[in-house]
Design a protein around this nucleic acid. Structure first.
Lengths: 206, 206
DNA sequence: CGCGGGGGCAAACGTATGTTTCAAACGTTT
DNA sequence: AAACGTTTGAAACATACGTTTGCCCCCGCG
């Protein structure tokens, strides 16, 4: 067939492994081995490891950003929206817009964390170029939701929130481990993300 | 001399390079070259690259945690402290307890971000084992500061805050770059960290 | 039927890495 | 001054990596 499922198999494997072990620590051999395809397939279909990394992000981010953009345009039409609504929409979309379980979302947030903390400059530039518009649209809506917060401070606080979210969802398993050891409580991922919302809202308000 | 400054030179170089490029992406050759020492010196003095990574963290974290622990014990004696005071103390100590400029602190937060997002399991275990006690002491004090927040939620929100802080200070330069491009404003690192405090306090209160 | 090309495969290539080796240089002690 | 343990030095080692190379198969078109 013209476009085999080899591409998808590679992307699936790469997504999980990159999230588990990081970009540099994941070899193409580990990816192709998990995907059950030949080593050369990566360079054949994607050109390079760097391009594969970008492709992994693109496959996840494009549908999400399109969905978010649509929702945001809706909200723009309806006039002012409050903080809870805005973050609620983004959160529901991020966790559920992919049909499959939110496990996928968690994997992706781990990827984002790595993209941010490691200096994958090419990736940062790529993300900024392709998805910066949606981010700015979101920021503009936020501004109308909390006009009492100066734009510059709002901008910073949104980044703080992004940090809390990415960091939390990146280290979800270790968070669950610790909470079990220190509090004798099993806590679901859903509950953690649910707690994230009031924290973010409270932080943005200051 | 019995313990030469080679060890310190290596630690200095490793600290900066690890923060700049990540652990896996930084070769021992890059480190020893920057330090002006022989390649074999790392394995001679530290045993392995992994041990070097731990040593970098230890050199920074041990003085900080000792200082923090002392301050916290003081506060315990003085009865209840409020949120602003607790986070203020921790923040001042983290940014200034090392004599030298807060640049050092920023470097270290970048390191922390990488330690968290990459699955350096050995590092996570090491940090937990050596510095978990201080963290628990801090958490206990927080509990008395906001008794209205259930312990479990407080625990989560502290982690959210940690995420915001680490994420922010990790990506400080890119944050400054963006703010300059989008807001035409130069923003100092000090101002960003200063904005971090009300965000964290607001988030913890919910 | 032939044959042309897209995709898959094993193998090899060049390079960069962490680590080891062993001899030379150094400083301290006797 | 001689002997010793500690530290440095240049070089080599084994390995793992990303990438490239040819050769094979197989399907669709002439």
């Amino acid at each position: 067939m013209s476009q085999s499922d080899t591409v998808q198999r590679i992307l699936d494997a790469a997504e999980v492994l990159f999230a588990q072990k990081g970009f540099a620590e994941t070899s193409l051999r580990a990816i192709t081995s998990r995907a059950g395809v030949n080593l050369a397939a990566v360079n054949y279909h994607f050109g390079s490891k760097e391009a594969l990394i970008q492709a992994v992000f693109e496959r996840y981010l494009t549908p999400f950003c399109q969905a978010l953009d649509g929702k945001l345009q809706e909200l723009e039409g309806q006039g002012a929206a409050d903080l809870e609504k805005l973050f609620g929409v983004a959160s529901r979309l991020a966790l559920g817009s992919h049909g499959d379980e939110p496990r996928r979302a968690m994997i992706f947030f781990r990827l984002s964390g790595q993209a941010y903390s490691q200096p994958q400059d090419h990736l940062r530039a790529y993300l900024r170029e392709h998805y910066g518009a949606v981010f700015r649209r979101f920021l503009a809506l936020l501004r109308t939701a909390v006009p009492e917060v100066p734009p510059m401070e709002l901008f910073l606080r949104v980044h703080f929130s992004l940090g809390a979210v990415i960091f939390t969802l990146s280290g979800m398993e270790s968070l669950q481990t610790i909470s079990k050891k220190d509090f004798n409580t099993d806590i679901t991922a859903a509950r953690i993300t649910q707690q994230l919302l009031p924290f973010v809202v409270g932080g943005i308000r200051g």
